[in-house]
Simulated assay, not measured.
Amino acid sequence: MPSKLAKTLAISVAATFISGAAMAADVTLKLGHVANEQNSWHMASVKFGEELAKLTDGRIETEIFPNESLGKEIDLINGMQLGTVDMTITGESLQNWAPKAALLAVPYAYKSIEHMDEVASGEIGDQIKAQIIEKVQIRPIAYFARGPRNLTSNRPITSPDELNGLKMRVPNVPLFVDVWAALGAQPTPMAFSEVFTSLQNGTIDGQENPLALIRSASFNEVQSNVNMTQHVRSWIYLTISELTWNKLSEEDQEAVMKAAAVAQAYERDLFEKSIADDRAYLEEHGMTFTEVDGDAFAAKAKDAVLANVNDEIKPIVEKLFEH
């Protein structure tokens, strides 16, 4: 049962479309996710609920539980397998069950957002979705782009040769550690909460994250440069439990997919605006944006990436690097 907090955080987005207070929805979908109410994923979830209510004349209501109020990401996936949660937003964590889900966030695999879209909506994307449905028993119905990760520092860095052993914080992910070591940096795994102080006192000289996190963590106060390495482009899925999906009529399944397509387009618009807003904010607050030689970074990172990906996706990653 959701806690009192979860109930207060739950946001019903169907009521607006139900005429007459006495009418109740036939189906209520519980959508739990980890982001806050200001996040574009949350706003897209609300949009999904609104669209689905419209398309089904209020028969299907969506209750949204942000801020991990229904549980952490893995708890939500487990809940969907058990039938206690209907929907969530999840990504490469699914590789615990479906190895191809690792393709959602491989360093330097996607040269541009257009290339990523081509993969996510094409044959490789179809293979990933099919494996997730088969192995995890949850169904991806839309995908949202995530802000590319960029390297910050106190000097411009345009090529891997200029890293010169830069001491930098990375998440505690072997792939990230090995890739940055191969590029010529000195990567140090560290909790995100320690990064600002470590940059401030000079324990480390740089870190890498999407612009939204660089902004929200106020790294502009302790770093002068954003080097546009864009080394990880990735996406994340809006998903529905197969148990829930199979209970829906074909007509309602179609409505779910239509609502998901609207939510995906809406989120992309929000995403593009947020990238532009975050860059403008960081520039206004003293950060300089530096273009880098992306091909040089990718070429130097390739062997370390291939050494870290699972055997099932290695041939696909090799082809992506040739793109």
Rank of each mutant, 00 (worst) to 15 (best):
A261G: 06
P174H: 13
F297W: 09
Q131C: 11
N227I: 06
P160Q: 09
T290G: 10
N154Y: 14
M43H: 14
V226D: 05
S198I: 00
N96P: 07
D295C: 15
L306W: 09
V292C: 13
P156H: 15
W235Q: 05
W235A: 05
K100D: 02
P189Y: 05
V34W: 00
G294E: 13
S249H: 14
E250A: 15
V119G: 10
D161C: 08
H33C: 03
E322R: 08
I11K: 15
D252V: 09
T90A: 10
F289Q: 10
D311F: 15
S19M: 14
T84L: 02
N164R: 15
N78D: 11
I204E: 02
K72A: 06
P107Y: 06
E123Q: 15
V226G: 05
E251A: 15
A10H: 04
D126N: 12
P189V: 07
D86Y: 02
A35M: 11
V256Y: 09
A276T: 07
D295F: 15
E312W: 09
L238C: 02
N220T: 04
T28R: 00
D205E: 15
K258E: 10
E322K: 11
E318S: 00
E284A: 10
I124H: 09
A101Y: 05
E283C: 04
W235K: 05
A21R: 11
Q264E: 08
E267W: 07
R149G: 14
Q95P: 08
I275C: 11
G147E: 10
L9V: 04
N39Q: 01
M23K: 14
T16F: 13
S234Q: 10
R59P: 05
A25C: 03
L243C: 13
S216M: 02
T56G: 06
P189S: 04
S121M: 03
T229E: 12
S249F: 15
V222K: 08
T8Q: 14
L282M: 05
S112M: 04
Q81T: 12
D269Y: 08
E284N: 12
V46E: 06
T28F: 00
I240P: 06
P2V: 00
G147Q: 11
V106I: 05
N39R: 00
S198N: 07
P66F: 05
M228A: 13
A260P: 03
G20A: 08
M168E: 08
I18P: 09
S218Q: 15
R139P: 12
S193W: 02
A182K: 12
F297V: 07
R169P: 06
M1F: 12
A98D: 12
G294S: 15
A260D: 04
L320N: 07
H231F: 14
G125H: 07
L248F: 11
T28K: 00
S241P: 04
A217I: 00
I60K: 00
A102V: 04
V173N: 15
M87K: 01
F321V: 03
V106L: 04
D303K: 13
S153P: 01
E291R: 11
L199N: 02
I214D: 01
I113E: 14
Q137C: 11
A255T: 08
L238M: 03
E250Y: 12
E194T: 05
E291T: 07
A6E: 02
M23F: 13
T84I: 04
N36R: 01
P187D: 05
A296L: 09
